[in-house]
Amino acid sequence: MSVDIESLRNILTLRYNPNSKSKLLKIGYDDFLLKSRENDVLIVENLLKNSISNYIKSLSQNRITLALSSGIDSVLILTLIRELFPELKITCISAGFEENDEEVNAAKEISRIQNCDFKQIHLENFLNNLPKQISIIKEPKWHYYWYFLAEEAKNHSSVLFTGDGGDELFGGYVFRYENFLNSFYNKSTWIEKTKQYLNCHNRDWVQDQNQMFGTKVGFSWEKIYQNFQKYFDNSLTPIEQVFFADYAGKLMHDWVPALDKIHSHFGIIGISPILDDEIIKFSCKISPEKKYNLKTNQGKLILRKISQNKKISINNSKRGFSPDLISFWKNYGNKITQIYLKNSHVSKENYINESWIITSIEKANSNDIRYINKLLSVLSFEIWYRLFITKEIDSDYTLL
């Protein structure tokens, strides 16, 4: 294995490589053009039920596991599964980063109401086994806490259901939409819209991104922008362009393929009913105002309506499956970074600028979360390098 410069440049700037292969259904801007005039809420509910029913009937299992948070996607999937298969044995698994995580507690109560078993995972130093995670993903990335959830799921069933895809297909990233649309003007070029879109993902890169890379990489923002022309240089409305870019970005080229590799490693089947091909196709035909309301800044309107019809309580304050990185940095991240990035291989080989690492550690120590994110990405590259290039560590090596 060798260092693919283009992939490295993309992964360390966008968090994913837009040129990587993915099994997820490929869509184009023309898929958004023909709008549905039917009862979208009823159609989506029926499509979800068909997806769930077809998957479960195809399995020779009397027990499944389900990744459960307190958010709308996984709670709706659990509710529909229980409605269709009232006798099915289900173990719900929820992961938290704090001892008394409110979202985990809420998920536990939801699991009880739906007559399911419940397992809780507490993740503290979730990067200690980073070599194992990277050996599975085979890319220099660090944000796969899902490893631990899949590991627990294996103890209960060989089938793991998720609510993945709800944000991308039905308009869940409201904080980004509001930012993008409020900064948008009608005559913006595709490059200007790309820059604004990337500003809505500013934890993935830093202001001195070009200074991070060494001479071997040849970084330029123009090369990064070219990845987004197909999303923003077309006749779609601005919000639909964002929907298009979100689906064909991290979901297609980061999250889904990575989870497939993790599931395969543990010998389990991962099932995401929302990402059924028919649901993906239909979601493109839903008018954007039926997904997201700019005035109220509320998204997933169709999924919310289905949930309301079924009297499902929705946690609108859900933080998502992500840690408090500032606390993690203080407890573990700073120490790990100091050990592996000072006199690192990736700086000695001129992939990463060593002086940038030093100044960025200072910024991270001042609680700059963007630099914490970026240093952890560079750390993952160093660990990847030691696994696959120098081969001085193996997958069972622990960082602390």
Rank of each mutant, 00 (worst) to 15 (best):
L400Q: 12
E83T: 11
N331F: 06
S135I: 06
G165Q: 11
S283M: 07
I121C: 09
N331Q: 06
D101N: 15
T79V: 06
P131T: 10
E240C: 06
S347M: 02
K261N: 10
S157L: 14
D277F: 08
A107T: 13
C284T: 15
F126C: 10
I90P: 06
S344Q: 01
N315I: 02
L84V: 06
D260W: 09
F97N: 10
I268G: 03
D31T: 09
E362H: 05
Y292E: 01
N115C: 01
E124P: 05
K26N: 10
C116A: 11
I312T: 04
C92V: 15
I262K: 02
P131Q: 12
M1F: 09
R15E: 05
F184D: 12
L275N: 01
L379P: 02
W205C: 00
S395V: 08
F180I: 15
E98L: 12
L400T: 10
S22F: 13
F180Q: 09
E102K: 13
S111F: 13
G267L: 07
S355M: 02
Q114G: 01
C92I: 15
N125P: 11
E124A: 06
K195L: 10
S395G: 05
N373K: 03
G172A: 14
N129Q: 11
N210T: 00
V104G: 07
I306A: 02
I326D: 07
Y371I: 06
G320R: 07
I90F: 12
L68F: 08
F175E: 12
N297R: 11
I239A: 03
D73W: 13
Y397P: 04
L301F: 07
N50V: 07
V346R: 00
P288D: 09
N179D: 10
T296P: 00
I93A: 09
L294S: 02
W142T: 13
H122D: 03
N367S: 11
D396S: 13
G218E: 05
E38V: 14
E38D: 15
H345T: 04
E354C: 01
W384D: 11
Y351L: 06
N10R: 08
A107F: 05
M1R: 06
W384Q: 03
G214H: 01
K300N: 07
I64G: 01
K330C: 06
E278A: 05
I110Y: 15
K342L: 15
K330M: 07
Q209V: 02
Y177V: 08
K187V: 08
N202F: 04
Y55T: 06
L42W: 12
R82G: 04
N350Y: 02
L325I: 09
M212Q: 13
K281N: 13
Y145P: 09
E152Q: 13
K138W: 04
Y231M: 13
I136F: 06
K285R: 09
N179P: 00
S22G: 08
S70H: 05
K310I: 04
S313K: 11
D246P: 03
K21M: 11
N186W: 10
N293I: 05
R15A: 09
L127D: 12
S36I: 08
K311W: 01
N10C: 11
S36R: 07
Y177P: 02
M1W: 07
F219D: 01
N46Y: 05
V242N: 00
L12M: 09
E362W: 02
F175M: 08
